[in-house]
Design a binder for these strands. Sequence first.
DNA 1: CAATACTATATGATTAGTCTTATAGTGGAG
DNA 2: CTCCACTATAAGACTAATCATATAGTATTG
Lengths: 188, 188
Amino acid sequence: MSLENGILGYLSIRPMSGYDIKKLFNLSAAYFWPADQAQIYRSLKKLLSDGQIELHGISRGDGPERKEYAITEKGQGTLHDWLIHPSQTDFISRLSYIMQLFFSGLLSGEDQLRFLDEQLRINQGILQQLEFNCRDNIKAYTETAKLSEDDIRLTSSVWACKWGMLRCKAYTELLEEMKADIQKKRLM
Amino acid sequence: MSLENGILGYLSIRPMSGYDIKKLFNLSAAYFWPADQAQIYRSLKKLLSDGQIELHGISRGDGPERKEYAITEKGQGTLHDWLIHPSQTDFISRLSYIMQLFFSGLLSGEDQLRFLDEQLRINQGILQQLEFNCRDNIKAYTETAKLSEDDIRLTSSVWACKWGMLRCKAYTELLEEMKADIQKKRLM
DNA sequence: CAATACTATATGATTAGTCTTATAGTGGAG
DNA sequence: CTCCACTATAAGACTAATCATATAGTATTG
């Protein structure tokens, strides 16, 4: 349901098309919620038939047909409810990299070290991407999505990004600690 | 695919039934990979038809029929490959609590504080659960799943659990920081 | 001896997400 | 004038996961 709630979130900033929503997800939410284009349009359809959003207008500017959706009263209610009642299950998410970490002990010492280095490498790459996002995203945001800086500050996107970076740094520390532990055991 | 890989991971410790695997997931992996019973049996079926696992024996002890599966050479290869080649996409996971955090700025100051308190409360509960797990899980593990302590130490379950706790603590800090920031802005 | 809990496997319906392909218009580069 | 990139929406096939329900045996408890 979170994709639908996210869509409601964006539409509560201003009316948008599915294409706009997709761009916003890619620009600023992809690292915690990769959104598939097909899924966005399907969700819009469902939200529309639920009365959570309404067709705000069909425009044809320079390009092809463009359907803009606006959030309804009912949609605002759903969004508000979702935000003020986070549930325990919202916290349980599938983390395949932790599944890998969990079973990495089954590898030989050498292979496990290789595994940890690989995780470190990927994690470092993600951190760099997030740092770039945090610095330059607002500009890209306002340009490509035509949102004002005030619009963006409506969300807590900077905090979410900060969380991504904190998580990466903490994970790096854990991986280094694991590496040290394995190397220590090898010398014994 | 991670559920299948996780099943291969458990089966590389020793042959097990679907029921055993389900218990192990619930006991020690549920916080990073909630596994549905139906999905486990379906995955076993698929792994079997792929030749990744084989039927090791059907036993009927005191209870009902029990199918034990063992990992094959092919399965070992798949598991090893998965572990030494973690991919970038394995790191991208849907975090609905971050989606909520992201949009929490849309709430009024008062509601956002309520939201943050709710997240803190849930996060604290999860931390307690993980601390309990880290302390008492190995016992439950050996008793209910009939794995020896050495079997368990084969995996890096303690490190995975430690990561869960680190994550919770870091998230608590972030939430407190956000709270302080909002309260500061309210006084201006 | 009926109810309940636990062990154990399995199917069916539904939902969410992924990946591919189709369609259709605009604008620019070569 | 063709190819490519971008804007824009949509349907189809498929996979993974969820939820409910069925079945069947054992053991315990009141």
